[in-house]
Every structure is written in structure tokens, then in C-alpha cells.
């Protein structure tokens, strides 16, 4: 295969990954890495490098829209970024010293976990600012967000230490595997800190760019980021995510979500199998 043909096929695959990732909210990275390694037999390290870069592109693009709408809480984002940037750097350093087989197996397990989490029923109890913990008050993490009718709903935040620790774990995995691990970040913010779902999703997106940039520096130095591969991956994922954001979200996404999740479960087992047999 020539580089031109290879580039066009990867571009197309990345476009589909970006589109599905955007429509389902699960992100493109989870499908890009299995695609590159299982179908194109690209070394996992190159795949992780390219995927991580595409994560920065899509999250920054999406965050641009949310920040303007005033849904992301900039202070919560910045506060949690202390944990996520440190976790991301550690993850990237650990990745350098871990064999690809093991990373492939961990990748598969995290895919399964993300798929399971996406089916979890979301029932939410929003705390009032009066119910916020002392630490949340000290770090000014409480805020408000506009609901569907444009009314500002105030909320309080709790379990700051638990949320911070969980964020560091999520970022460590993100740095290790080259994915956004948005699903885990949302768990940290929803289940621990009791952030409204709308705020946690957008704030997570807002943080992913900085978190991925923190591990990208290490990956760049280590030679994981190849321009010839990253080029079609970034452009494809970006175009796919852009088109995805323009498609109106309706009830059809539920079916799409189930299909996408099934694909992820299939890919997860493929990654684990290939890791165990030493093919990756």
C-alpha cells in the first residue's frame, strides 16, 4: 500500500470515529487506537501518540462552544487540573516503561469499564449551595448553570478529596493509554462531587485538552508522535467531530449508542486477546 492510499483510508476511519465519538459522547480515542492497531497493524505506541493528539483537537473544539455558553465551571476545571495534569504526566512516564502487551490488556479493560458506565442509569440529586462541603466553599467550587428554560440553577459541591483522587486516576489512565477517559472523569464529578450532569460533562471536556497536552509533551520527546500518521488521524477525527456536532441530537442517538457500545465491547475483547497472545 502507498502512503497516499494509507493516508486516505486512515482519514476515512478517523472521520467515522470522530463522528460516532461526538454523537455518543464517548470520544473518538476509544475507537481510533483499536482501529490502527487491529486493522492496520500499527505499533501501539504510534497509535497512542496519534490518538492523544486527536483528543486535544476534539476536546478543545467542543470546549470552545461550552465555555461560551457558560456551562463549564472554570474554577472547578482549573482546580481539578492540578490532579489531572500530574496524573497525565505520571501516566505517560509509566507508559514508556510498560510493555505494549500489558498496555493493550489495560486498554481492553478500560474499554469494558467505559461501556458499562455508559449504560448506568443516571439519577441525579443536585445539592444546594448550603449543602456544600467546607472545602468546596473554600475553593469556590459551587456555581450555577442555565437549565433548558434559561433559568440559573445554583448547585453545591461535596467530597472534594475523593473527586480529586478519582480525577488523578482517570488522568493517569488517559496518559497511559492516549485516550480522553472522559467517562471516568464524569464519574469522579457526578458520583463523588455531586456536580450536575450538564456541568460535569462540559467541565470534563474542558479539562481533557490540558490533561492530554500534559502527557503529549512526554510522548513527543519519546518519539511516539509521527507526523505522517497523526496528520490523517487528527484531520479525520476533527472533521468527524465537527459534522457530529452539527447533527441534531434526537432519539435516534439511543440506538446509535447501543451499536457503538457493542462495537466497543467487541474491540475491548480483541485488544485483550491480542495483548495476551502477544500480537500487540
Amino acid at each position: 500500500m502507498s502512503i497516499i492510499a494509507f493516508t486516505l483510508i486512515v482519514l476515512f476511519g478517523a472521520f467515522i470515529a470522530g463522528l460516532l465519538g461526538s454523537l455518543t459522547g464517548l470520544g473518538g480515542g476509544v475507537i481510533i487506537i483499536p482501529m490502527l492497531t487491529l486493522i492496520f497493524h500499527i505499533d501501539l505506541r504510534y497509535a497512542i501518540g496519534a490518538s492523544l493528539i486527536s483528543v486535544i483537537a476534539t476536546s478543545s473544539g467542543a470546549a470552545a462552544a461550552y465555555v461560551k455558553e457558560g456551562i463549564s465551571n472554570i474554577r472547578i476545571g482549573m482546580f481539578l487540573e492540578i490532579a489531572t495534569t500530574i496524573g497525565a504526566v505520571l501516566g505517560a512516564i509509566v507508559a514508556v516503561y510498560t510493555s505494549s502487551h500489558i498496555i493493550a490488556i489495560i486498554f481492553g479493560l478500560i474499554l469494558l469499564l467505559s461501556a458499562a458506565l455508559s449504560f448506568k442509569k443516571k439519577d441525579q440529586m443536585i445539592l444546594t449551595p448550603a449543602g456544600a462541603s467546607k472545602m468546596a466553599n473554600f475553593f469556590k467550587l459551587n456555581g450555577s448553570y442555565p437549565n433548558e428554560k434559561g433559568k440559573e440553577i445554583p448547585y453545591g459541591v461535596t467530597k472534594v478529596i475523593g473527586g480529586l483522587s478519582m480525577m488523578m486516576v482517570a488522568a493517569l489512565i488517559s496518559g497511559l493509554l492516549g485516550i480522553g477517559s472522559g467517562a471516568l472523569k464524569v464519574v469522579a464529578m457526578d458520583n463523588f462531587m455531586k456536580l450536575p450532569f450538564k456541568v460535569s460533562t462540559t467541565t470534563s471536556n474542558f479539562m481533557i485538552g490540558v490533561t492530554a497536552a500534559a502527557s503529549a509533551g512526554i510522548y513527543l520527546e519519546r518519539g511516539y508522535i509521527d507526523p505522517g500518521l497523526a496528520m490523517p488521524v487528527v484531520l479525520g477525527v476533527l472533521a468527524g467531530a465537527f459534522v457530529g456536532s452539527k447533527i441534531l441530537v434526537n432519539s435516534g442517538t439511543k440506538v446509535l449508542r447501543i451499536i457503538f457500545t457493542s462495537v466497543i465491547i467487541f474491540l475491548a475483547f480483541q485488544m485483550i486477546y491480542n495483548g495476551l497472545t502477544g500480537n500487540i
Partner: peptide
């Protein structure tokens, strides 16, 4: 950069199956 890259090297074969790492000219 991608268009120039494809014009210059488009007919070569891609080689990503073995990890060799990028040359130092592309890592800092």
C-alpha cells in the same frame, strides 16, 4: 504540511508496524 508530504512521499510505503521512534529532528 500533509499535502506537501503526500506530494513528496505519497508513493512510498508506510512503515508503522515496528516502533523505532521519531528522529530527534521531530521530537523537540
Amino acid at each position: 504540511g500533509g499535502i506537501i508530504y503526500l506530494i513528496k512521499y505519497g508513493n512510498n510505503s508506510p512503515n508503522y508496524t515496528q516502533f523505532v521512534g521519531e528522529p530527534s529532528s521531530l521530537t523537540n
